[in-house]
Nucleic acid binder design. Structure first.
Length: 289
DNA sequence: GCCCAGGGAATCG
DNA sequence: CGATTCCATGGG
């Protein structure tokens, strides 16, 4: 990986990058804060910034940004210091996973903002991805600050000014009361989202599960996508059906049993394997009736 | 009209 | 306890 700076145009150019596909990384279901503008051209909003990304094979351009922002934010956000080649080569040897890993080559696990990720996955429950994205977009445009080229996701303090009825204007439906409960816990400092990041996975999970509307699945998504707990294996309806087809001869299993089976089998890389499976299953309707 | 969606809480038996 | 029902909303 080679990084070049185009200071005149506020642009970062990454060359010779392996195992990084911008489109797959954003569209594999882990994040909802982006918009596809053209093929291999995306608009992302995070950390109160809008970032445009354009990819041509093993070259990725990000703009507008500074060297400082790239080093302090985007390098970690896109997990660019992790060697995905090693992970890819490990699971490509597994006959069951091979086609899924090949299909998902280039997916990276983002390190998202904790607050936004938590609210996003509360909204995700019993919902569809396009609808989730609409809600997140509504939140930013109506409750957040205007920023260069777009709108930032609202802060806890900004969301706290909205009533449950007002939140429902975003079409989050019955989840509005859950979002309200979560927001109050954060602004009242009952829940210290940043501080708990240094705790072991089980302790972070325990804190997250205190929020109404957060169960095991949502907690695992937040652990994986925001707290960088890469050994977490969230089990949703797609993962459940796919895992039953791949490893249990199509026979129905309990959610808990699937999670335990996967985390034991895939270990410290459970999260990325989960994302390969989720992306393949959804794009190819694996296990769908 | 019926079914389901990156589930979870409330209620029932 | 485990199993069932309800929850808003929108698209197929």
């Amino acid at each position: 990986m080679k990084i070049e700076w185009d200071n005149k145009n506020n642009k970062i150019i990454i060359k010779d990058i392996k195992n990084f596909n911008v489109g797959k990384t954003l569209e594999c279901g882990q994040a909802f804060n982006f918009e596809k503008l053209e093929e291999d051209y995306y608009k992302l909003t995070a950390f109160k910034r809008v970032l445009f990304l354009r990819q041509d094979k093993d070259k990725v351009e990000m703009f507008p940004t500074t060297e400082e922002d790239f080093n302090n934010i985007w390098l970690e956000y896109f997990d660019l210091n992790t060697d995905y080649d090693a992970i890819y080569n490990k699971f490509i040897k597994d006959d069951v996973l091979k086609p899924l890993v090949e299909y998902g080559e280039g997916i990276r696990i983002l390190k998202q903002e904790k607050w936004e990720c938590l609210i996003s996955f509360i909204i995700s429950q019993n919902n569809r991805i396009p609808q989730i994205k609409k809600c997140i977009n509504y939140f930013a445009e109506n409750y957040g600050d205007q920023i260069e080229n777009g709108y930032a996701f609202p802060t806890p303090e900004q969301l706290a000014t909205k009533s449950i009825e007002q939140l429902q204007e975003s079409k989050v439906g019955f989840r509005a009361k859950y979002i309200n409960d979560c927001t109050l816990k954060v602004v009242n400092k009952e829940l210290l989202l940043e501080e708990i990041g240094s705790l072991p996975r089980e302790d972070v999970a325990k804190e997250l599960l205190k929020i109404k509307g957060v169960g095991v699945k949502v907690a695992n998504c937040v652990l994986l996508f925001a707290y960088a707990k890469a050994d977490a294996f969230p089990v949703d309806v797609w993962i459940k059906r796919a895992m039953e087809v791949l490893y249990f001869d199509g026979k129905e299993q309990k959610l808990e049993d699937i999670q335990n089976f996967a985390e034991e089998k895939f270990g410290e890389y459970s999260g990325i394997v989960q994302q390969y499976i989720f992306y393949y299953a959804r794009e190819n309707e694996l296990g769908k009736k």
